[in-house]
Design a protein around this nucleic acid. Sequence first.
RNA 1: GGGCGGUUAGCUCAGCGGUAGAGCACCGGCUUUACACGCCGGCUGUCACAGGUUCGAUCCCUGUACCGCCCACCA
Length: 855
Amino acid sequence: MDDTAQPRVPDKPALEGLETKWQHRWDEDGTFKFDRSKSRQQIFSIDTPPPTVSGSLHIGHVFSYTHTDVIARFQRMRGREVFYPMGWDDNGLPTERRVQNYYGVRCDPSLPYDPGFEPPAQPPKQPLSISRPNFIELCERLTKEDEKAFEHLWRYLGLSVDWSMTYATIDRRSQRVSQIGFLHLLKKGLAYQLEAPTLWDIDFRTAVAQAELEDREREGAYHRLRFDRSNGVAVEIETTRPELLPACVALVAHPDDVRYQPLFGTDVLTPLFRSRVPVLAHALADPDKGSGIAMICTFGDITDVTWWRELSLPVRAVIQPNGTLRPVTWGEPGWASEEPASAQSLYDQIAGQSIAKARTRIVELLREQGAMIGEPRPIVHNVKFFEKGDRPLEIITSRQWFIKTVDQRAALIERGRQLQWYPEYMRVRYENWVNGLSGDWCISRQRFFGVPFPLWYPVNGAGLVDYSRPIVPDEGRLPIDPSTDVPDGYREEQRNRPNGFSGDPDVMDTWATSSLTSQIVSGWCRDDDLFARVFPMDLRPQAHDIIRTWLFSSVLRAHLEHNSLPWHHAAISGFVTDPDRKKMSKSKGNVVTPFALLEEHGSDGVRYWAAKGGPGVDTMFDAGQMKVGRRLAIKVLNASKFILGKSDPLGPITAPVDRAMLHNLAVIVEQTTQALDAYEYGRAIDLVEREFWGFCDDYLEFVKGRRYGDQGSAGSASANAALIAALGVYLRLLAPYLPFATEEVWSWWKSGSIHRASWPTRQELTVGIEVGDSDLTTWSYARELLAEARKRRSEAKQPLKVPIINAVISDVPERLQMLDAIDADLRAAVRIDVLTRNPRPGELSIEVEFGAAPA
RNA sequence: GGGCGGUUAGCUCAGCGGUAGAGCACCGGCUUUACACGCCGGCUGUCACAGGUUCGAUCCCUGUACCGCCCACCA
């Protein structure tokens, strides 16, 4: 470092342009380039959340990514080599939807690839059908554009990412890791396929996982229906899904319910379709709900699935994957009816219709037949939705791939306890989720833009696909797309032919890939040397809304694959809320474009606001705080200009006030370091900011006169040296928060980046400075006197140019002794001609006598 | 229904056993040669409510209310 050169201080320092200037300089200088020669102990590795590129950029991103960057810059300055890659999540449904709308296309997997395809300039009114490979090409093309916009924003915000280490969740590397990970689970028996009832979105026409569900309140109605018994007495049940009546396979009541105990083991006839179904007992039936007896349909909700499984009931499925009622022939096996002809004529009136239409019609029919008692009773209840979906989920039986999770429950809870959470209480959400897992993780999706299952299946002589014997590729071939790649020993002509093969048509849940981001960035199965240096990683930063998805699935995958945690620490950010305390999101129309904010308040100003929102805390969007941050950054520039503007003479730090100020700063350094070590970035900036502002308003004012030479060369030399030492420390304490302003000042004065400078320590401030216990008291006494004297001047409304000709300081003798050390500085700072000491017991007080105003 | 977090100055929040704090806002003053994107000073609080522990509670315990969030098998 070249600290002795004369600082080059601009006349009018300003924040404008610093973002552009320094992001380019950092890029050219490779300031944040990861040095992979460092050992595991020297490295701090971060598993950055890859933002969904097809989503819009919003202030919530800026908020949480700033938190991570503050930690990254802090660790880097502490001497850790920070491994800080950036990913783009371009895999999955959001991208598919965006591509469909942007280009006006839709994917038809039956079409062949067209190598020369170009999308129309304007999206056509009627969506254009294109092949899956063509669709994926468009996905990739559009996400490239989105990624550029994101990177631009991140660089402008000042994220200290190594931009040579980016990845996308759909790129070949991620696909390969994702497919290897899947094949490992398959080999260990931890992944399996099953033909089973699965949560299904009828609009997207895909299976979804438990983690992607959300409850929404919907209006519904209880319909009271009469089921006939052979003895002529009717049983009344209540249902909100009358359209599922044809799918009814049993009635169920609680085993202890005396009202229905006589019915257990008997049969009843369903209304309209006259299907004979048993009355059964099961503990899940709630005597207080409805009439206390329920109809079991295949399938109306998850409880139906439980009953169906535990009571060994048959399947009578009526809902098709597209959400319409399938055609049924009553009287055929599985569709028994006492009166098949009338059942058929009634059912034909709802077959092929949507769920909503079928419901309306079936209620009319029930009325006509007198099978409905009274009017439907409106209720509001929670209904399960796919989080991205518009209509309630159905349960459809289909072949899907699963990863075993439920039998890992205890081990996953234990992993959660090994993980260090910030804040601690976020662990509870994880445990709630793990304890509430109701089934294994369904990872197959009937979609197009995603990582395909790296599998084919043999097709037998009759042309039927044999799913029980998947054909697995060599790991060396991965990634593959079974819809275009051909398994070893087969030819393309055998695709979907008898005695040939058939590719798995599905893609994986995006979380099946995202759960491996720490493996993807760490070079798992690609770069063993790198992997050993960065994995398990140090930090997973993320927001709390995806604990059940991203965090959970990542812990699961690392546990199953490596028998370890994926990282040691999880730092959880809150949300950004609008003034009504609602989460800001695009759908609510309350999003603020982040780039305009960065330009208006400066990246440092916006970062300041973000950093004040501590770990886990939802934080209100507050432009006022951004302005405060901007002022802090400007203050840094101006105070630095003042301090560095005159560094001569420079000498030993002898003045008690100077030494006390530095000693006090050493305490702040310790406290700030502790806070940042505990990921308390909000508390840390509070500490530094408050002290820095006091340093400017009190200390600078206090020593200004002495520094200009009022008390001779030695006093000036001491002040200059103390000012410069303190400034160097403050800049470094602020550097993680205000990377642009601090770097700018550092460059006036030192060589190299402040972001590679070493974090300040207590020792650096106290070595060579003789500090007695009394010194801290000296500085606080000086501040007390300064405040008191200023108050007198303010009360008298006297401008500073009017001198105080005499100030009488009354205090206990022990404290008055300290005046000797600060007398001259104090008199200069408040313009006091004479200080008179008045020893006496009691509180400090000052009486002043003003002189005449100068002409 | 279960759980987690919160309730402190007009607003946003910090404090978490010992005389209530910061910033913003507001009011008054200051052209003081680093900064008017500034400086100085001032005003503002039954620390949600009710009990308990303690010499002492905003802070610990137990309830209650309200706000936000997470989870839940929602006939």
